[in-house]
Amino acid sequence: MFPLTPKSSQFFHPLLLSLLLLLSAAAAAPTTSSLPNLLKSQGLPGGIFPDNVKSYDLDRNGRLEVHLQGPCMAKFDTRVFFDTVVRANLSYGGLVGLEGLTQEELFLWLPVKGIQVNDPSSGLILFDIGLAHKQLSLSLFEVPPVCKPQGLLQNFGRKMGFEVAR
């Protein structure tokens, strides 16, 4: 052991303070390492967001911002379109105030305003598409869906309402 001298105690005190600050910051950091883990820790299935997530940010108020590699199309029970950035307020069991996610319903593209799991034992997840609520099986969201660009950027705007059947 080193004897504490007036000079060494001046060095020791700031070092100890720095170590305590570092430990408290590590304890306050979220323990989830991936977006699916974060969603699961909040009572949601891990496969709500697609496989091309670059990064995500969650602020202390619960505002979640998910950054994708680019806009893309995926499929749950119907087709869904993800913008490059999807935002929502994350709380236990739900994503509220969703922005950047639209779902095809009867040839119309409707914005998904919220996603909620009220009772996990029911096996259902609820999608709020504004005009209605749609219940889907939780099993559809176990794994992140494959999301493909498929040249949709050039056609998506023109075909927002209707799609030509071939």
Rank of each mutant, 00 (worst) to 15 (best):
G100E: 01
A132K: 15
F127P: 04
D119Q: 08
A132F: 15
I115E: 08
H133N: 13
V96I: 08
L136I: 01
G123D: 12
E99V: 15
F141Y: 10
L98R: 02
L140R: 12
E104R: 15
R63Q: 10
F82D: 01
S91F: 03
E142Q: 15
T78E: 01
Q135K: 14
G123A: 13
L138A: 06
N89L: 07
W109M: 14
E65K: 15
G114C: 08
G97E: 04
L95K: 07
E104N: 14
S121D: 03
L140F: 14
E104L: 08
V143G: 00
G114T: 02
G70R: 00
F81V: 13
N118D: 11
G100T: 07
L138Y: 10
L110D: 04
E105W: 14
W109G: 05
C72V: 02
E104C: 15
Q135E: 11
L90E: 09
A74F: 01
E65W: 07
V80I: 09
S137C: 08
L101D: 01
G97K: 02
I129V: 10
V66P: 06
A74Y: 00
P120H: 00
V86L: 07
W109N: 10
Q116D: 04
L140P: 01
K134W: 12
I115G: 10
L131F: 12
Q103T: 15
V66S: 01
P111Y: 04
F141S: 06
L138S: 11
Y92R: 14
S139G: 13
Q69C: 03
N118A: 05
Y92A: 13
G70M: 03
G123Q: 11
L64Q: 03
N61W: 10
K134T: 15
L124C: 06
L106Y: 06
L124I: 01
L131R: 08
H67F: 13
R63P: 02
D83E: 15
L95T: 08
L131H: 15
